[in-house]
Design a protein around this nucleic acid. Sequence first.
RNA 1: GGCGAGGUAGCCAAGUGGUUAGGCAACGGUUUGCAAAACCGUCACACGCCGGUUCGAAUCCGGUCCUCGCCUCCA
Length: 500
Amino acid sequence: MALHLYDTLAVKKIPFEPAEPGHARIYVCGPTTYDDAHIGHARPCVVYDVLVRHLRRSGTKVTYVRNVTDIDDKIIKRAAENGEAPADLAERMFRSYREDMDRLRNLRPDREPKVSEHLDDIRALIGRLIERGHAYEASGDVYFSVSSCPDYGKLSHRKLEDLEAGASERVDPEELERKRHPYDFALWKGSKPGEPAWDSPWGPGRPGWHIECSAMSMRYLGESFDLHGGGLDLVFPHHENEIAQSECATGKTFARHWMHNGFVQVNKEKMSKSLGNFFRLREAFDKVEPEAVRWALLTVHYRAPFNLEMDLDEAGNLLGFPQFDEAESRLQYVYASRQRLAELPPKKIVASKQPVPEELAQFPERVARALDDDLNTPVALAHAASFLKHVNELCDRAAAKGGQIGEAAHAAALEGFRVLDEVLGLGGDDPAAFLERVRDRRARALGIELEDVARAIAERAEARQAKDFARADRVRDELVARGVEILDTPQGTTWRLVRR
RNA sequence: GGCGAGGUAGCCAAGUGGUUAGGCAACGGUUUGCAAAACCGUCACACGCCGGUUCGAAUCCGGUCCUCGCCUCCA
């Protein structure tokens, strides 16, 4: 089965077929850079990253564009509060965002266009809309006329008449007066004194929110492209407006496929500062490996809501995230398995006619099939679980006295890890470094001094050498009481934390 | 009010007309000086509620309850 994706416009799963076979052009709405990224930024980024990785792995060329909104009211407001230039704040937060997304092991998009660098494109598009009678000037602003667009509402499946009912209450009455229709939206906003402003035929001002995405996607992907994505909240009004203004300007289908990821909820509620359930990604990254956040996000289908449990103490301080901890434990398993496989002595791997277990041989194909079905990452992870189990079984077999495994099975296992990394972006870090980082961080969080542990292990080794098992056990029991477990391996003694 | 997404075993989470999803936790086993890791097994004939269709429904239809989101700048 070829890739099928749920399409917001069609309201069902449909085959994803790029207009140019073998080359997918994808645009995703990126961040407004006024603050550090939160978990709600991470989810779409990870979801579309997996989409792009999957397409590339299956031989499709992908041009992946994700914009950066660096001109915006929220940026202006926050910068004023900070006493900082809006452009500086936007740049600083763009770097912060990029760093966080890198740490989540997301590939960078092919292009990350900024509004501030595309004013020409935006002005040209607005001009085109005015020319074609879909937009009008009103005292320094330019508005798009929704009633000039016959199928306005087709993406969010709303009718203009339905929208009008409750429209007026929330809108600034002055603005309403300038508009011909309450749902007309600004393409260009005239600037107030002191606000950042760019010249335009309609006077100094800045672009409205929606027009940038139309202008920039067309610039890099053409007037008609294959897929447009973003969070579910963007369906209306943002994407609805993008379609309207783009299709009215060009007369062509804008994006051929619309994809939206579900929301992240924290403790069953929308994340917000006022509810006290807000946190920045970097705060989470102090508690768990960023890759664990990625794993956790992929355990839930992208269209379903992701409910994150956040443990807080009575004062509202962040204690941790059980789901991220569990995901991190799964990654420990991934990396430990990869390490075991890598450390098999070469003489244990022999030519053999033994069939390769299908869980190993079929793993890449199974992942591909799961992702082909509307990016079903939970199923892909289920296949990963069974793949990893069989890798360990293989290693167990090799570890047995005189045990040997076939080269074909060994090669299939290595290939499986490559797929896990390439397609899902998981398990591609250095295993030893990952495992040690997790262990040491968890230990320190529990107030365990790493030097004390090393000393105790040395003492126990000495006791075991002298066959003084009572003393060896006593040392181990003391460590266990403090939350440290000793692991004896052929490579020597190591340690881990007791799970709580 | 309009539009939409969900309610699946202790917890998380796929599936969507008939055949083991998967993970976590817990418990038992193999292994081990004792452990851990790893592997095997149990928990699991679970699907909000009430009707209907069907040889057969978690899956389709009708109704109903609950949770959540969007409805002008929010990912």
